[in-house]
Design a protein around this nucleic acid. Structure first.
Lengths: 333, 333
DNA sequence: CCTCTTCATGTAATCGATTACATTATACTC
DNA sequence: GAGTATAATGTAATCGATTACATGAAGAGG
């Protein structure tokens, strides 16, 4: 079933069919109607490869996922992100192309665009100094970064306001009476880790409390429950603190477990604030006060910005607001 | 950068370059070396659309996600599933194409294949009697179904052993002394719902306990915490039971909350078994005994079967084993 | 009634790969 | 050394769309 078949069946030329499909005008309403009917009757869909080849554009947006599952797990909202993107993409007749970084190969992200499988890329696991950004710019491949990594030159991005997140989490802990707040942060080298620390420090400044570097701990790699547990246990031995801000809800549940195991009560003795607001956070006991990020919106904006770039429009990076979800882990009563 | 540029630069014809790229042999080792070097020097990647157009195959596997987020949320392992698929796909040089069901349109799943964007589809939200299956067969589009819906003719599928899951969950509850087990099942019309019920019934038969239909409740639509809570509360009024099997861990946390609110203790008074083993399940208090499904493997097998189909190989549907993860929600002590 | 637009439509080149077929060179058989 | 198989390579058609350009008809203006 090709455009020729449709043309024949509708008794017009392929050019006319193409004009109808692409709404280019200059077609007699009568003819147009006949063509549309024929298209539907024959169940014709224009061949994507042919169109793509001819127009030199694929209408695909590429995502490359790293080979190890780690990052996936530490990005609990991946599905929500994809869904946010999808809504925009399908409205504009784009689709998502997902490729996986092959073992041993490191340039799948380039390949997907160079091949013409995607017109642009979304990068969502970029570390400070990531050299992929330079490669993409060198090859002139449009892309949008989720987050704001350092030392990678300039680029368009969509991020949540991690600085504010760090600030309101810390501020809230001050509000419920904490004085020395343990901060279990994400891995070094991530933009979010840096921004959340800034927020944490700013909250100290505004409160007039001196910032004690020793209270900030970084997870080695994965922000999972296990590491939250271990780091908290260690901190309990090392130093004194009266509240915890944990940069990730899975980690936070680990911290909660360590606190309770030490005979302390989460909330009453040690208030805890998490980050992310994963479904889990409402369900644990006590439920977890946490910072919620509009991940769905991140996906939406990333898609919109990228598509605007592809259409040569002026685009602006975006930082989306976050807010505190108050639950029981910070109630003293 | 096209195959012509490479041919010119390597001083051969496009045919020879193509032979090298596709490992078709009949190329002088000397020439081959020169061509490979040229390809790498020029950073050439064959145009996907051209190849796809000519060979009439896209190397894409399609997934269409429904427009509402509901299903997504009730499929907590979506990411794991995608990741399982991805590993296989990238090894075999396939990629994933994700499209979203457009508002008002209902044939995105057909379109994606008819356009030639994907060579085959994975369907993972098929209800009993879903008419998409018939359409796909009519158009000769290869596909693999996740799950085993009824009344949709024959098809290839990958599923987890939900019958066994229902059985071992129920059996375990009998083992810890339950006699009347409330079963909060998923929505009617889903294959998993049916199979889990069969397992539940079989466990009764083997134990010699009469199966009481009134103990089985179905959630209306979403297997979420809210509905688990509501159904359990209602059951507490309606009937007597001494254990609960909940067809989904999110729902199970709702059930746990309702039980505790009623002044009963989960485990000691009312043991509860869930299904899915989402990350949450290990973190709630008490931790949830549940049935674990190898979702990653489901993704892997779905990809393998579909690709085998595309290559005209003989394929066999697959049912993957499940197992019980024993935690504290079924400890009496 | 002749010229000039404008509209509706068609013809054919084109995008970048694959591949059937042709061609040449080389090696092998007897 | 003639005949033939085999290897290495090239030429050109092809996939299915888009689109520049050509064409003819109809309407406008004088």
């Amino acid at each position: 079933m090709t455009i020729k078949d449709v043309a024949r069946a509708a008794n017009v030329s392929v050019a006319t069919v193409s004009r109808v499909i692409n709404h280019l005008g200059n077609v007699d309403p009568e003819t147009e109607k006949r063509v549309i009917e024929t298209i539907e009757r024959l169940n014709y869909f224009p061949n994507h490869s042919a169109k793509s080849l001819r127009t030199n554009s694929s209408n695909g947006i590429g995502i490359v996922i790293s080979h190890d599952l780690d990052y996936f797990i530490s990005f609990p909202y991946f599905v929500e992100f994809i869904h946010g993107m999808s809504a925009v993409l399908s409205d504009l007749d784009y689709h998502l192309v997902i490729s996986t970084e092959k073992k041993g190969k490191t340039d799948s992200y380039l390949e997907i665009a160079a091949k013409g499988l995607a017109d642009g890329l979304i990068l969502f696991d970029v570390m400070d100094g990531d050299e992929r950004i330079f490669a993409l710019k060198k090859f002139g491949i449009p892309f949008v970064v989720i987050g704001r990594p350092n030392n990678v030159g300039t680029y368009e991005y969509v991020d949540t306001d991690n600085e504010k997140g760090g600030f309101i989490a810390t501020e809230h802990l001050f509000e419920v009476g904490c004085k020395r707040i343990l901060f279990i942060n994400g891995p070094k080298g991530h933009a979010a880790t840096r921004y959340r620390l800034s927020g944490y420090i700013r909250a100290h400044k505004e409160k007039g409390i001196e910032y004690d570097e020793r209270l900030v701990r970084y997870v080695e790699k994965n922000s999972d429950r296990e590491n939250g547990y271990i780091l908290t246990q260690k901190a309990l031995k090392d130093l004194s603190f009266d509240g915890i801000f944990v940069s990730g809800d899975f980690m936070a549940t680990g911290a909660m477990a360590a606190i309770e195991e030490a005979g302390l009560r989460v909330g009453k003795d040690i208030p805890i604030v998490g980050f992310d607001d994963v479904p889990l956070s409402a369900m644990v006991n006590p439920s977890l006060t946490t910072v919620r990020q509009p991940i769905n919106e991140v996906g939406k904006h990333a898609a919109m910005i990228l598509i605007d770039m592809l259409n040569g429009k002026h685009v602006e990076s975006k930082v989306l607001d976050v807010f505190l979800v108050r639950r029981n882990s910070t109630i003293r009563e």
